[in-house]
Design a protein around this nucleic acid. Structure first.
Lengths: 198, 198
DNA sequence: GGCTTGACCAGAGGATTCTTCTAGAGCAAT
DNA sequence: ATTGCTCTAGAAGAATCCTCTGGTCAAGCC
């Protein structure tokens, strides 16, 4: 029966929760839905997550963590600034296609923008943005605009497009949008990375 | 006692709901909270909104409608393309400062990205994006990239920055970010509006 | 005035949903 | 074998949601 971890209901609950949340929305989803979909018991749910919010928060952290890890790996492997800047945009677009469910959930569940985010989520974000910040400043050759502005220029259009695509308001595909978004990111950030030759 | 409409509990419920949602998050907010904060009764709440989702949806529509109306007024008053492009960015930044509560709620409550949005919300968005689309195509002098891409380049960085600022992850203010975001929007869109002189 | 109609409001109470709690299974270390 | 830990189970109590009945009030009509 393999080890304890592999049999654990924790993952089953997360999977079931994702499916239910996408089917009914987070507000309308019931513990009952999640339990029957995942085959777990009330006890397991409360043991692992402490409630509906804990479950949704943990799912959020899991999805975001996977995204961050993959994104930073792409960035870290880039041989130069232009490749890196474009890689993140392209990774984002292929990630939302490959993980549409998770991407939708990440966009739809944003309660933590109101009540304070969990420690785990806060630290996840801090690490990721810290890595990004470091990557940028290590390569910059001019004085940078404030970092939140740089990041917004880099990824804002891509996030915005993704949001539209995921809510199915849009006919153009991520693949079609990719060259435009990649170019505009490099267009905005490129000047920061070239030597100041006058 | 004035007319019926002015005494109505509908607005009181919306106001109370906004306050509660911001205080506890949408998921944790209870009808009880909203009722005691707004001084309305169970009957009123269900009469007007039919439930928690209906209440949150109506609040969303109210907030977004106010934003759209003001934004399009600014765009419509602009004498030329550059003024218009910059005006929307600047309007967005001042709106989130003037209506921080509503802006936070609009960002935090996104259940409708999963279950189908209400007719009212869908039509609100259709009208607004239709107006924007019209404004752009009326003034374009070159062949446009796909419209969702254009809109993402225009507003994506501003939305992205706003999101960071509203969740208090960021020290720089909207006023400080404004010139950067306004410039980058015009930088991205300007070429579409100039005559193709070679 | 008196009657009718329809919009709106009130709150009790049944139905649903959430959470706690006790009990026990499986595994590892002693 | 015993102890201690993690995890699972589901019944029962607590909390929350929503339906339903019975109003109030203003407006329109006779």
């Amino acid at each position: 029966m393999a080890t304890r971890q592999e049999t654990s209901k924790r993952q089953a609950l997360l999977d079931g929760a994702l499916a239910c949340f996408l089917e009914h929305g987070v507000v309308e989803t019931t513990m009952e839905h999640v339990l029957s979909r995942s085959g777990a018991s009330v006890g397991s749910l409360y043991h692992h997550f402490g409630g509906k919010e804990g479950l949704a928060d943990a799912l959020y952290v899991e999805c975001l963590g996977g995204y961050h890890t993959a994104a930073f790996a792409r960035l870290d492997a880039a041989p130069d600034a232009e490749t890196g800047v474009r890689a993140i945009v392209e990774h984002h677009l292929s990630w939302i296609v490959a993980h549409t469910d998770r991407a939708k959930f990440l966009l739809a569940y944003r309660d933590h923008e109101i009540r304070p985010a969990s420690d785990e989520l806060r630290s996840l974000n801090r690490v990721f943005y810290g890595q990004i910040e470091r990557w940028i400043t290590d390569r910059a050759h001019v004085e940078l605009p404030p970092l939140p502005v740089v990041i917004s220029q880099w990824l804002g259009p891509t996030h915005s497009f993704s949001r539209h695509w995921l809510s199915a308001q849009v006919r153009i595909t991520p693949a079609d949008a990719r060259p435009f978004l990649s170019d505009s990111a490099w267009h905005a950030l490129g000047p920061l990375f070239r030597p100041t030759t006058g």
